[in-house]
Design a protein around this nucleic acid. Sequence first.
DNA 1: CTCCTAGCTATAGGATTTGATAGCCAGAAC
DNA 2: GTTCTGGCTATCAAATCCTATAGCTAGGAG
Lengths: 165, 165
Amino acid sequence: MSLTFEGVLADRSTWRLDNCSIGKSMDVIGTRSSMLILREAFYGTTRFDDFARRTKMTDAIVAARLRELTGIGLFAKRAYQVPGRRSRYEYILTEKGRDLVPAVFALMQWGKKHLQGEDGGPLRLVERGTGEPVMIGPRTVSGRDLDLEDLAIVAHGDWAGPQSG
Amino acid sequence: MSLTFEGVLADRSTWRLDNCSIGKSMDVIGTRSSMLILREAFYGTTRFDDFARRTKMTDAIVAARLRELTGIGLFAKRAYQVPGRRSRYEYILTEKGRDLVPAVFALMQWGKKHLQGEDGGPLRLVERGTGEPVMIGPRTVSGRDLDLEDLAIVAHGDWAGPQSG
DNA sequence: CTCCTAGCTATAGGATTTGATAGCCAGAAC
DNA sequence: GTTCTGGCTATCAAATCCTATAGCTAGGAG
């Protein structure tokens, strides 16, 4: 019914997660506005006004989030200039930002299945070119899809005490 | 640099995401406390007191979240009784709850790479039995791993107007 | 030199989230 | 009975998130 803890972790009463990666991630990007801005960035949006209009959020919060996410390193600012207009900045995803693709699309996959109507909403995520359906989930590097029961958590060899994970 | 929109979606200026699945998902489970409770449930926790102690959150918030998540249908309450104690309820993940495994572990994977120290923290997610490393990300049903550039969004055949996705 | 606009900044207020602390309640132990 | 305990509920205060509204500012257009 759940995943497995191996080695020194097997007895869960002996350790505690003090600064787990999930909590840290949620502290950093755990807001609706951050997720929607990331969605837009994945969709190709780079400019302030487009973020605001497409997410239907106010200028204030878009500005605050872009500043925050840029500060964290999910976006890099890059100058651009439309001919006849003055120079502005656009927001380009860094690798750190792009690495959130699994998290954001996993949320989309879940919402599509469980929160939208019967058909899962009008949009589908597919492979470019082939149109093959795309799924997000855990798998081994050799390509096996895994369920929760197939997962295990192990400690690094030099683990010293209950800290993060 | 981003994903592709195909068919009627190709011109992004003609449509808008009004109730996208990502926003809906964040409305429902987009809190740190929800994610930590789900983490614990994936780790095998089922009882109120264990949720509270393991997540280090207060009783009040754990109770509020469990009630909320149960109401949404992520948990089902099941009576249990330790011999010599009175009957209580424990919180069992439903399929809807278990379907959040990709989202939660994707956050864990990201935090591990980008927010923890150099080694990514002391814990690793592996396949039970083999110990093979586990990754979370988008792939086709036939097993190809995909990058952001390989993804495309298409509309259902009977799509009528700009709504969700 | 004045107007216009994209891209922000400032402020005020409400809703939500969280922590801290305290209290309740039903049954088992005695 | 009375006490004890697991499993909650209630209340208060602080922080965060979001909306709404208004204003600023640097350059191009005229």
